[in-house]
């Protein structure tokens, strides 16, 4: 028997097709995706998720048709019963046992790695905060400075001053989170140019984050190793509002509005923290 027909025979067999696609999917997820420009390694949890999805898809493929299902099962049954495959059977038995043992060991072995964490980048804001002892209701709150359109240039100039005096070292000259100190932080300072930060938020949310900074966030927002200070200790309410004004003006984003807020997700089909 020459090599080519044998390969072709295997390639046409549903069992080996399934194995091949599984291996291919693994190669793509683990090695090809990180090679793409601007990409990075895929976390193990996501690899597992993708592989399970592919596996389920393959099982559906091999079993949605009687004939294919029967052919798919052939090699499995052969390994389990045929006398000539006694070696393969024994090897399989050993491999499966060892694999289960290894997985079980990996699950219970003690490690010193930090636990994986979920962090929601935009935790739910409180309805009300206390800013220097004064209660501020965040719900429905607009930037009060916008109520005086004639003075906006003045406020913007003021906000610019506040930004360059306080925010520049981390959030950078281009408001892109690439300040001089940025590389020293994990998580990185927010990139306001990105459409995933202030572009997604109401100004009152930004006010809350500037005023309260990293400490004291709700549990879902931790571990918030953020170096963001509690700016309420250093800036006045007006200064914070003016710097927010500056952020939106400079980046060109529009703050999320209240009235027409239709919910960023749908409970039936929406999800997560985008």
């Amino acid at each position: 028997m020459t090599a080519a027909p044998a390969v072709r025979r295997y390639a046409a067999h549903p069992f080996w097709q399934a194995v091949g696609i599984l291996v291919l999917a693994y190669i793509v997820v683990v090695w090809v995706v990180p090679l793409l420009p601007g990409s990075a390694i895929v976390p193990k949890s996501v690899v597992l998720q993708y592989m399970v999805t592919v596996l389920v898809g393959l099982l559906i493929y091999v079993s949605d048709n009687e004939e294919r299902w029967a052919r798919f099962k052939e090699p499995i049954e052969a390994v389990l019963v045929e006398p000539r495959l006694r070696v393969a059977r024994a090897a399989l038995l050993v491999v499966v046992t060892v694999l289960v043992g290894l997985i079980a060991y990996g699950q219970v072995a003690t490690t010193v790695a930090a636990p994986p964490n979920l962090r929601s980048i935009h935790p739910a804001p409180p309805t009300e905060i206390t800013f220097r002892g004064k209660s501020i209701t965040l719900t429905g709150l607009e930037n009060p400075l916008r109520a005086h359109p004639e003075s906006l240039p003045l406020y913007l100039a003021e906000g610019k001053g506040v930004y360059y005096r306080n925010c520049l070292p981390c959030h950078g000259d281009h408001l892109d989170g690439q300040g001089h100190f940025a590389s020293g932080f994990n998580p990185l300072p927010a990139n306001f140019q990105d459409n995933g930060t202030i572009a997604q938020l109401t100004e009152s949310f930004v006010f809350w984050r500037v005023a309260k900074g990293g400490p004291g966030l709700p549990r879902e927002g931790t571990p918030w190793n953020s170096a963001m200070p509690q700016w309420e200790d250093f800036l006045t309410e007006r200064e914070i509002w003016s710097v927010i004004l500056f952020l939106y003006d400079q980046t060109g984003w529009k703050p999320r509005r209240w009235e027409t807020e239709p919910g960023k997700g749908e409970s039936g089909k929406g999800k997560g923290d985008d």
């Binding site: 206390t130 002892g133 400490p215 004291g216 509690q230 200790d233 006045t236």
Partner: peptide, 14 residues
Amino acid sequence: SPTSPTSAGGAGGA
């Protein structure tokens, strides 16, 4: 920050 975690108090205006 005299009171509660959510009410760090007024450390004088700038």
